[in-house]
Design a protein around this nucleic acid. Structure first.
Length: 108
DNA sequence: CGTGTGACGCGAG
DNA sequence: CCTCGCGCCACAC
């Protein structure tokens, strides 16, 4: 599962973001959103972990490295409002519509 | 291998 | 906006 999470996070395209719940679901564990966060917190720094936000489009690392995360995302073109929240309707990654081939096949 | 625990969540009230 | 508690799994023991 950890592997699946890392794999999916690595798939998040530049300039897009995903939520913990979304990653968990894609990994086959719809209810394990928290584990996703835990995994990202302790995995390496190789992944675009900054592209993972909570379900409200806000960073969950304010007490960790919030500033850094926001900077990294803004550098990708993701805009945050004064409250540190980005518009998921605009930036949320939608794998089914972009590159989740396996899920796409199922619907065919 | 069994148990305990806590974590970057989430949705409901 | 705030609070509550469920749920699930990686990790330390």
């Amino acid at each position: 599962m950890k592997a699946a999470v890392l794999k999916w996070v690595a798939q998040i395209p530049f300039g897009k973001v995903a939520t913990y719940g979304q990653i968990a679901a894609l990994s086959g564990h719809p209810r394990a959103a928290r584990q996703v966060g835990r995994i990202l917190a302790s995995n390496g720094e190789d992944l675009p972990w900054q592209r993972v936000l909570n379900a409200k489009g806000k960073i969950s690392t304010e007490s960790q490295s919030g500033e850094l995360q926001i900077r990294l995302l803004e550098a990708e073109g993701v805009v945050f409002n004064a409250e540190g929240v980005c518009d998921l309707r605009t930036y949320l990654w939608q794998p089914e519509l972009s590159q989740d081939r396996s899920a796409l096949k199922k619907s065919l």
